[in-house]
């Protein structure tokens, strides 16, 4: 029994490691690049899984909060010379307050209104954020230079950036942090209960609206962490984070609701897949289709299995 449950629990991780090793032998660049990129996708996808799983809201402005976080990190760096990685802490707090504020002002009013109003509302919020960023910072690309971000090493003839491994570190750290929060803290356990059964949680005396507020705030705040690690390596423009909404949703759909470890696994798997397509000469432009293709395929397969999706 013990060995079977062990196998079940770590089956996916084992497959992932095998996949990466196989790809590493075939295309070492794609494996490393995919691992790094995929962790970043997971880092952005984890908070969406929280809002979807616990608050039950599909937040279409997810990616735009990420862009906003990136701009706030940029402003810290320009105005105070703060290192992007250090500014994660203030940005985390700022985005938490912003997320909680947006939740309190708007989203709490559509919680019971059905998915149509929720989607339209967050779509509207997404457009407001995007256009406000356009207004304040214009569409001119900006960047922040830090010397350690461009460091690279050469191992066995393969040259790759070392800074990007920070994505992996942060993704795993956030994953562990969230697991600890949900399992060990009182508030986290309450959130977990609300995610499983909001009515039941209410009956046993959990303040559900407070839990929703905190969870939404934390989800937006985690995007601040992603923003902090992204800034040194990314060109900054208003729609830089927009694509992460769909990518994150794709990961959640793949992993299933409430499966945080699955987000990291699917993120890395898709990152590697994307990197493989990118490494085929002449077909690099098709790599964007990997996520959307997988997303549509996953949704379709799930709908066939469970027709009342």
């Amino acid at each position: 029994m013990e060995s079977i449950s062990f196998w079940k629990k770590y089956k996916n991780i084992l497959f992932l490691i095998l996949l990466i090793v196989a790809v590493a032998i075939w295309k070492p660049h794609a494996a490393i690049y995919g691992l790094q990129r995929g962790s970043l996708y997971a880092l952005a996808g984890l908070p969406l899984s929280l809002t979807l799983g616990i608050v039950g809201i599909m937040n279409l402005s997810h990616g735009d909060f990420l862009s906003l976080g990136i701009y706030i990190v940029y402003m810290f760096s320009v105005n105070t010379g703060m290192d992007p990685l250090v500014s994660i802490l203030p940005v985390f707090i700022l985005l938490f307050l912003l997320g909680a504020g947006v939740y309190k002002l708007t989203i709490t009013k559509v919680l019971k209104a059905g998915h149509l109003n929720q989607l339209l509302l967050t779509f509207g919020i997404s457009m407001i954020l995007l256009e406000v960023m356009n207004l304040i910072w214009t569409s001119r690309p900006r960047s922040v230079y830090v010397d350690y971000a461009s460091s690279s090493v050469t191992v066995a003839g393969v040259r790759f950036g070392t800074y990007e491994f920070l994505y992996v570190v942060f993704a795993i750290a956030v994953l562990i942090g969230l697991q600890l929060f949900l399992k060990k803290t009182r508030l986290g356990q309450a959130s977990f209960a609300v995610g499983q059964n909001p009515r039941g949680a209410k009956i046993v005396g959990i303040n559900t609206s407070f839990v929703y507020l905190i969870v939404f705030g934390i989800s937006v705040a985690i995007l601040g962490i992603a923003a902090g690690v992204m800034v040194p390596r990314f060109a900054i423009f208003p729609s830089v984070g927009s694509s992460y909404t769909m990518k994150s949703f794709c990961l959640v759909a793949m992993a299933g609701l409430g499966n945080l470890t699955g987000i990291l696994i699917s993120g890395i798997a898709l990152g590697v897949g994307e990197a493989i397509v990118q490494s085929i000469p002449g077909y690099a432009g098709w790599s964007d289709i990997v996520f959307f293709g997988v997303l549509i395929a996953v949704i379709m397969i799930r709908s066939i299995r469970r027709p009342s999706l």
């Binding site: 599909m58 998915h115 149509l116 989607l119 769909m246 949703f249 794709c250 759909a253 432009g285 098709w286 964007d288 289709i289 959307f292 293709g293 997303l295 549509i296 949704i299 379709m300 709908s303 066939i304 027709p307 009342s308 999706l309």
Partner: peptide, 20 residues
């Protein structure tokens, strides 16, 4: 065959697929 959230997201993804 999809409903609600899943239909909305899939149409959004399809529009991007067309563009790619």
């Amino acid at each position: 065959r999809l409903r609600g959230l899943y239909f909305a997201i899939t149409t959004m993804a399809l529009a991007s697929v067309f563009m790619v």
